[in-house]
Nucleic acid binder design. Sequence first.
DNA 1: GCTCACATGTAATCCGTTACATGATTCT
DNA 2: AGAATCATGTAACGGATTACATGTGAGC
Lengths: 186, 186
Amino acid sequence: MELGNTSYVILGMLRKGPKSGYEIKAKADISTRFFWAVSYGQIYPELKRLEEGGLIEGTSDPASGRQRRVFSITASGEQALREWLKRPGDLHTELRHEGVLRFFFADALDHEERLELLHTMRAKHRRLHEELSTIVPSAEAAREETGDVLGLLTLETGIAYQELFVELCDRLERRLNEIESDSGGS
Amino acid sequence: MELGNTSYVILGMLRKGPKSGYEIKAKADISTRFFWAVSYGQIYPELKRLEEGGLIEGTSDPASGRQRRVFSITASGEQALREWLKRPGDLHTELRHEGVLRFFFADALDHEERLELLHTMRAKHRRLHEELSTIVPSAEAAREETGDVLGLLTLETGIAYQELFVELCDRLERRLNEIESDSGGS
DNA sequence: GCTCACATGTAATCCGTTACATGATTCT
DNA sequence: AGAATCATGTAACGGATTACATGTGAGC
């Protein structure tokens, strides 16, 4: 059966322990979301498909008071996951960044408007930086409990990424101001 | 009419001067591609739509020996572009990064396999870094000719972005080696 | 004459989001 | 009692890629 990267998000989450679709989404929202987002509209149909393919197994969960289906990864699911993790060849990377896009075309704006764009952009990355920072304690707790250090390292990577953009906004602002004062000087 | 960010890529490219669909793609491939990619499958239908909406104007070009349509931005097209550039509110940012995704789930691998993943990832970012570096001279030439400094600044931003990921791969490798020698030591 | 770059377009498909619909349980 | 959270799912839509189809002009 054909699996996309989103299928592996589900498989990877289930490998860390049995979960419901709802829980997968919740975990993804504080971890993979920042470099691979998933939505309910993908998760639930995909859980069905993966179960039909025998990569995961669902059981109705009477232990919980709630009506919910909890899925576990099967042996062939684990095998598929490992196969993907080891698969050689190109790693898909894609960036869609409206802020940089606008900046590229910002010669249609005047100096003040350009600075405002950079401020909006920096504010966004600062917000994301903060959001990621609040997750750190729970990632540290997870490392203590499960011994999984990669969650924390990945989170730090995400934080460094946001920091870079904040710094780039500052750098661009300085450069624009230099150019403006050079051309407008005296 | 409804315009998406891809429409503004076309509008922005045409604002720098009249172009064919083919040329728009070629220019985008060495500039916006790294933070907002576009394909022919979007460009040609969108050119039609933008012309119908009066934001651009196409003229068959007999000056060139070839059969081609060259589009120019209209006054209302420029207005739409500026309106977008100044529009307040959220800037869409999206990252899909299979390398970091795999790394997050890489506790299913052994130490050597994890390092290999990081090497593949670093190789990819190095390749992109190099690709961007080769564009620098043409961006500098464009700055000289057209006075547009933003193309160069955006390119430098893209280069800094690739540099960060190369450095992050190194950093992660060091961290993994530290952990490995700690647990395997003595 | 051949190949490469120029050039335009469409159809199928995939991937993903958003909005909607529904309902149970827990907490206040 | 009411609100928030837990929980599952689907349908419509949008955005984008890929593959395909087709043809011309320029340079070797």
